[in-house]
Write a protein that binds this DNA or RNA. Structure first.
Lengths: 329, 329
DNA sequence: CTGTTAGCGCTTTCAG
DNA sequence: CTGAAAGCGCTAACAG
């Protein structure tokens, strides 16, 4: 290969890895030969020499049932797609619980099969975060660090508060009694979503009494939503599509018709035709990759409201400005 | 490392790769040293030397919305978990369409970043199958080869016919008018599922007039299911959980109560409490890995009916034997 | 800016 | 059965 371009093997290596240190004319000659011969460097040799893999390790979570799994899946897809553009590969693995996950990450890292990792579903005081920080293994968490006293680390999260705020503002267009159907206090993400609804209601000077908390189950959600409807709700903003599914069940039973907005924009929302807050996992993936590259410390991604206009529980046609005058694009 | 055990580096390599050619006593000594030092061979060096990666490449499909994605996800998880037991890694990648997928597989294979691949969602006359067979790249398809005249290749599929047959038999326990709600003729998997229902009805000597075909959409399914109920259906066997969701909507609207059985056993089935045929993706993954190892040509995996006893649309408590005397375990 | 030398850690080949 | 030698293809370090 090197001979074909009339240069040494080393110049080829330089041309490919550090183009700016080779003479432009030589560079062009090399690149031409590369293209002509369809040459591509042997990655195993490179990895052996540099002991780096340019590979990102991601754990596949076990349950993957329901909506959570779909989200992680879309995230993984976005990461993989964008990693390819950065000439990086993605290696997946499974683990039995957080300790095992850390053990496997250690092993993959030590054998440099992957040199950076993405942690998903990070929780309060996540043991994995502490372990990886201490081990000095590069990683980014998808899920913000809720613990102020925890170790510093890179993370990316979706601004759930902004999402429900936008959803609430959109619902205010059709009536003032916008209800919230969420999870019990205590989960970071759930609390943020409730806070967004509350903020929007506060700004509009409206009461926040139509607020119910249930576990993420359509049956329970249906009960709670029925009560909200009985209390005069003109719209229901939900903390998840699962809850929204239950809310729509309540509408059907009561033969009512008010907008329902879900969260996560899953296939359920698309199938039944209700609006839902889209977590913009493509943006999250981009942010994660940029943090892996060392660009910043953390980042909050703003989700987008995906409006759908189902005749019975969709949002009305969009107005140019929402209630408080903020553009609701 | 080698020195620690008092043997040459080569003996270590042999002990790890071809244990049977080294003296048992030496072997034991080596293994002891390996365990003590926590030694693990450098995979990049090995891969460079052997130009093999012991890695399986799997494409992450783009849409991953709805139920199909959840299935692939569970499959990927099972594959990854079981691959680890076989000391194999899993590399994921994305592609824009089948041609790009083949191109990427070619590239990964040539650079031996992965030495075997799994094709998912294989279709009639799948172009990827032909291309990979011709290129001599090892792969296994998840999804059977419906084309008799297509190239021979390894595949694994779920026996959908057996699944709906079992579901139908279970429903016959509560009434003879078991309806089928499926997709239009033409999809291999959909036709198999319908055939299973038909077989069970034929065996029981019952009419197969309660048969409707709609696209995989809950709304359409609800309409069709309403008609089936009006026609006197005593149970509805569906080709997917999506259709089953619609059928349950119809039950709610008609205030009726008959068993509904879905297919795929997704979170929707678990959430709403209807029975569903579980594709046993763990078994599929095991079969795929065994075929990658070269064990056979193809394999049909039998799914299992996951019975749930929801008061309004679940199956009744299980009887020891179903209508035709076959054990319905 | 280009060429030469050396070595990453392993396994295959060949002598003992 | 065990040991020594060679080389997989690359890039870091230095000499020109």
């Amino acid at each position: 290969m090197a001979a074909k371009a009339g240069v040494s093997r080393q110049t080829v290596s330089n041309a490919l890895n550090t183009p700016r240190i080779v003479h432009p004319a030589t560079l062009e000659r090399v690149m031409e030969a590369v293209a002509e011969l369809g040459y591509s460097p042997n990655l195993h040799a490179r990895r052996l020499r540099t002991s780096s893999a340019r590979t990102i390790g991601v754990r596949l979570e076990p349950v993957h049932d329901g909506i959570h799994g779909v989200l992680l899946d879309r995230f993984l897809h976005a990461v993989t797609e964008q990693a390819a553009d950065l000439d990086r590969h993605v290696l997946v693995f499974t683990a039995d619980g957080p300790d095992d996950e850390v053990a496997r990450i250690r092993s993959l890292s030590q054998r440099s099969l992957a040199d950076a990792f993405i942690l998903t579903s990070t929780d309060h005081r996540d043991a994995r975060v502490a372990a990886l920080v201490e081990a000095g293994i590069p990683f980014v968490a998808f899920g913000r660090s809720w613990d102020a006293d925890g170790p510093d680390h890179a993370w990316v999260d979706v601004d759930g508060r902004a999402g429900t705020r936008e959803a609430t503002e959109a619902c205010l267009a059709v009536g003032e009694r916008v209800a919230f159907l969420g999870w019990p206090t205590g989960s970071g993400a759930g609390d943020e979503r409730r806070a967004g609804w509350r903020e929007a209601m506060d700004v509009a000077g409206l009461a926040t009494d139509l607020d119910r908390a249930v576990t993420d189950d359509p049956g329970e959600a249906q009960e709670a939503a029925s009560e909200l409807l009985a209390a005069g709700a003109t719209a229901i903003v939900c903390a998840s599509d699962t809850l929204a599914l239950g809310a729509i069940g309540a509408l059907a039973r009561a033969d009512a018709s008010v907008p329902v907005v879900g969260f996560d924009d899953t296939g359920v929302a698309a199938g039944l035709g209700f609006s839902s807050v889209d977590q913009s996992l493509g943006d999250v993936a981009a942010a994660v990759l940029s943090l892996l590259h060392g660009d910043a410390d953390h980042r909050l991604v703003t989700p987008r409201l995906h409006r759908r206009a189902h005749p019975r529980w969709g949002l009305p046609a969009q107005r140019t400005a929402s209630a408080d005058g903020k553009e609701a694009s």
